[in-house]
Design a protein around this nucleic acid. Structure first.
Lengths: 153, 153
DNA sequence: CTTATTTGGTTTCTTAATGCAACCATTCTG
DNA sequence: CAGAATGGTTGCATTAAGAAACCAAATAAG
């Protein structure tokens, strides 16, 4: 059986997970954010099998999250770089990292700091237009007409 | 072969993905945020196979993201509810949703609005301590001593 | 109270994905 | 030019996913 498709569920979250929802994709993106660009460097730093890495990179390229650039001087030698779409996943990756650190403890020797001040980042939060922090209890799920969302199930 | 373990990679992101990094887990959490609590409701709204749903719910419960509550009047009848840890994934889910809407277009008839004002939410961003928005290019990855992070690969 | 239906699973079977190792052509290095 | 590194591909074994059938307990209907 083919895996269930997530891009036709009429859900943005499902659609996103269809692109980066597997075990490896977001880790590849995170690694790219650290500066990794070469196939072998991804392979060694992540400890991922070559065929899986190959498949994930191709899929990330297909989905516009990364680009493959030929940097060979006398032929083919590639670099994989994040696109704007890929870099925009910074929020997601950072939120995930912070969530893990909050609930599972600091298991990462690596820290993210502001490049200018060297201070740690602020926690990623959901704000309303006035800058007030919102939890899931403070929001409503509505349809296009502003009426309360009813699930189709 | 068993899937590679992500909780011993010394990476918070990997650790998070170990808990919610598969195709279904985050969708189950998102659905729970919409108010779904019963097994059959998850099943119908997500279109997930029963055995997979069963497995995912168990794993989310094991990881402290959800709790199973017996609500039967004369025996066993269960509800699955988000814990604080689970509700805290709201930031991640919202960031993912917004990312998808920005880059793949609005494929979701459902909208999230501020419960008070009814206005759309602000975009989820990464801030420094002073509230300035940071991109991935504005941050540094450092070790515990503040020295630039070197990958072990 | 009795029957039918719903709930919350488990089991079985088939297909897909993952991991590992071996292999290979091209490219860079010494 | 020789040897190593790069960026893959292929084949095989193991695991996960999906569909459907089945089932016991709990609830709803009559």
């Amino acid at each position: 059986m083919t895996r269930k498709r997530f891009d036709d569920m009429g859900c943005s979250v499902a659609c996103a997970l269809n692109e980066v929802g597997d075990w490896w994709s977001l880790l590849v993106v995170k690694q790219a954010m650290l500066g990794t660009r070469r196939f072998v460097d991804f392979q060694h730093s992540l400890g991922i099998a070559k065929n899986i890495l190959c498949n994930r990179l191709s899929r990330l390229v297909d989905n516009g999250v990364m680009v493959r650039v030929d940097v060979g001087e006398h032929g083919k030698r590639y670099e994989y770089r994040l696109t704007d779409k890929g870099r925009d996943l910074f929020t997601v990756v950072t939120a995930l990292r912070q969530w893990s650190e909050r609930w599972n403890g600091e298991k990462d020797a690596m820290q993210l700091v502001d490049g200018q001040s060297g201070e740690p980042l602020a926690p990623v939060v959901v704000n309303n237009q006035q800058g007030k922090v919102l939890t899931v209890r403070d929001v409503r799920f509505v349809d296009e007409d502003g009426k309360p969302w009813e699930d189709v199930g």
